[in-house]
Design a protein around this nucleic acid. Sequence first.
DNA 1: GCCTAAGTGCTTTTT
DNA 2: GCACTTAGGC
Length: 713
Amino acid sequence: MDILENLNDNQKEAVLHINGPLLVLAGAGSGKTKVLTTRIAYLIQEGISPLNILAITFTNKAAMEMKGRIYKLIGYTARDMQISTFHSFGLRIVKENYEYLGYSKNFVVIDSDDSLTVVKKILKDKNIDPNKFNPRAIRSKISTLKNELKTPDIYKREVSDVFEEVVLDVYLKYQSILQENNSLDFDDLLILPIKLFKEKPDILEYYQEKFKYILIDEYQDTNEAQYKLTKLLAKKYQNICAVGDVDQAIYGFRGANYKNILNFERDYKNTKIINLEENYRSTKTILKAANSVIRNNKNRKVKNLFSNLEEGEKINYYRASDYQDEVQFVVQKIKELAKSNNYSDIVILYRTNAQSRMFEDGLVKANIPYKIIGGINFYGRLEIKNLLAYLRLIHNSQDNVSLERIINVPKRGIGEKTISKLASTADLKQISLYEAIDSGKELIFKNIIEELKAKKDTMPLVEFIDLVLDKSGIRKEYESEKSLDADIRLENLEEFKSVAKTFEDEYGVVSLEDFLLNISLVSDNTEIKEEKNAVSLMTIHAVKGLEFPYVFLVGMEENLFPHANSLYSEEELEEERRLCYVAITRCKKKMFITNARIRLLYGTNQVNPISRFIKEIDPDLLDNISANCFEKNEKIDYNNIKEEKVDISKNYDNVDINYQVGDFVYHENFGAGKVLEIIPNLKDPTRTLLKIAFKLPYGVKTLIYSHKNLRKV
DNA sequence: GCCTAAGTGCTTTTT
DNA sequence: GCACTTAGGC
């Protein structure tokens, strides 16, 4: 089989380039993954050992996908090469060099939840008011600093206000706590290898020899640490192939710097640059829409991405009355599509995870199978986190964070007092909390852990997990509760066992250590419940790299998308726009864009303007559909009226018009309505409220509202 | 130490 | 709407 068969000239050129730096600027849908995978296959075909190849992606999903495609091309010869995310690559390096880095063998990797817990604890110990200094903000600042490779020492020099002083203070303590607990956070997985490589040239050289051929996907999304890490590794042989697209840089918020890709030529002499500009994915209409949006970014290199596919259908744009209407529209359209397509051809994309729930409800009611990708993490569930904390503590008794989490789970009558007593003993003797336990109810707990510790290597993983569930009392607690909630938790624990089972099946006998380390980097639960034919729901960030024939882009309102937090920064706004570009370019055949006139957000009804991104799309490409309103003199069915208040705090306007009950009115956002009641405000007549019935596509809704944006008809 | 009720503040996106 | 925190009664 000729692996070069289906490539165009530029793609072929990229594949055939073996030695020396190569930069592939690959527009959306231009066959980027194809180039990467074929190139790897070609390298191996040309006699380069798979052991010498390192390919780095951003998500586990992308890594899996890439592996699969290479296997398809050249079979399992490819098994020996390293395809992983930056973080799992970092983990590998740390695992191979933990001693030099000052950790012991049973180190654990903590997730961002745990690191937040650590920050909160530090604030408490230092008597810093978490209401004044937001723990999340502090954690995220520390993470940013770490990714910028700024140690506390370096940061000290630039601290300029109280918040930063607090950050510095917490940062120092945070690092020492992690070290004491023999645990690393995600950021350490990038920084520690860099530290190692800088301090130990011989070790660096070993890895340079090992990974002579390096491929980096989504190079525009690398942050300082990732950039440094690659640079160190590629320095000797310069056989680095970076693939990326500046227009798809969407991780600025976590320190990614798209300029890394622009500087590639400067960093690596004699770089060969290849542009991939033909899009094989989307119809002309969709590509034009994407281009018309991204064109509004000032900070970009103009490029010419084109499609030779058919013109295609126009983009459907539906401006719904409210979120329920928006959901109904989407559900309706999905039903229509499902007549001649698979559910798996359809994706619903939103800006924030919080938006997923209402679509989930709608799909459940309509009996449409769906899967949510990302969002509330399987491993983030309480029962799973607790079980994991047990496993971690059994594995690493230095892990104070895990101990505190579960010493009283299920309830054993151990409270704050006992823990602080333990903490002071531990502090005094310079030992861990676990080691400090010597009496009382705590000792019973310790004995359970000791017993489990002794058994951990004597049985298969799944059996051991069962044992932990039994001995800890977790299972019994949920079983005796007999509520739906408890049943779900038990089910999740069973699910966790099947994760372990799959892991064992794949790798043979595995140690608790390997299992824990492996699991710490898996964040998305997509692979756990493999639903074959289902509509996908995910954030736009999560959809990067994927494609679907039918795409619903929902919630296209100002404040939501672009998100309220990014409205005041040109940089962030451009990132939002790139995000929109990513969303549109996922679509192969037909796209649907929706928004809602009233949106239930944070518990109140809000009214948001239409997203600027919709306005940036050439109107000729859009097919507008709007919600119907009701006719003058139409009878209102008062039996089925839902009454809702709109957040009217900003909506007062001077009142000149005298409305009367029964008047027909028209409102910019809600459409036609009828005045049902006038609610006077005696203190301030300009603040008179009206109770108005508005007709929405699925029924009548009553809103209490001011006069703003309202007129008589 | 546990439980409940009431109060508070906030929510972008991910490894 | 929610998760999270706090106060107060048991």
